[in-house]
Design a binder for these strands. Structure first.
Ligand SMILES: [Zn+2]
Ligand SMILES: [Zn+2]
Ligand SMILES: [Zn+2]
Ligand SMILES: [Zn+2]
Lengths: 132, 132
DNA sequence: CTTGACCTTGTAGTTGCTACAAGGTGCATA
DNA sequence: TATGCACCTTGTAGCAACTACAAGGTCAAG
């Protein structure tokens, strides 16, 4: 398949696929006489893997690790678990941060009964140090 | 105060402060004979405002808007409210996304009882299209 | 007078793409 | 056959919001 088809099949822009190839995240494709890239089902599987990992919030570096791990079938699962656990912890931290943010923004919204910015509690609270 | 003191007082790197000045987010500081920047309490207040807004997840562009609004004391609060409401909505969307991520990562972790990567459910599930 | 902490400017790197520009290819249609 | 159009190629530059140098100037302490 050509890059456009692979792009459509995976919901990835062609430019992103080329970028992955440049970065060594995806193996280089075969070339036709026209010099067009020619992808196999293996590439489709690999790109699906990469995109899914990225959607799950793994960094490019982590994706590289996951790819390396997935190529060593005889290795223990533990290494993969570690990465997933790490990512889970990170996501939970972000959720906690965002919950705190949401609360603060909500309080700001409720706090201001003024209608001129001169007395606006929101503007006022931006100028104060956070207690967080 | 010199840039280092302002940096310490606000938990901002000196380089970031210079960056804000370049970007017009902060007014330029006075200069001493040495050409060192010299900051006033007004700068401290302004930088505190900026940092707080950034911590709350506002983009630089939004910070610019907030700053512009805060300089028009006679304007209605509504404009500020709108920005805060927008940011609140955005934060809530991110929380929802991350909750979904957390669930998926949790399921992945629980799904794998294998101990060799060859049979790893986690690696397997990365290769499959997400249903989300 | 030297050391060391601090400051200056300018430039380049970070992450993960995304957006051109300038040109080549391949296929349908007039 | 020509020509249009969608698709492909490479290379380079841009995005956000910093961050990290490098090469040099300033200032107070010892
Ligand atoms: Zn192996
Ligand atoms: Zn208000
Ligand atoms: Zn006004
Ligand atoms: Zn496993």
């Amino acid at each position: 398949m050509r890059i456009g088809e692979l792009a459509k099949a995976t919901g990835t822009k062609a430019e992103t696929i080329r970028y992955y190839e440049r970065e060594g995240i995806l193996p280089a494709a075969d070339r036709r006489d026209s010099n067009y890239r020619d992808y196999s089902d293996n590439h489709l599987a690999a790109l699906t893997f990469v995109r899914r990992a990225r959607q799950l919030g793994f960094s490019m570096a982590q994706v590289r690790e996951l790819l390396a791990l997935s190529n060593h079938e005889d290795n223990p699962c533990q290494d993969v678990d570690r990465l997933v656990q790490l990512q889970l912890t990170e996501v939970e931290r972000k959720i906690a941060d965002l919950n705190a943010l949401r609360d603060e923004l909500g309080q700001m919204l409720r706090s201001c009964q003024a209608d001129k910015i001169g007395e606006c509690q929101i503007i006022g609270s931006l100028g104060r140090q956070s207690v967080m």
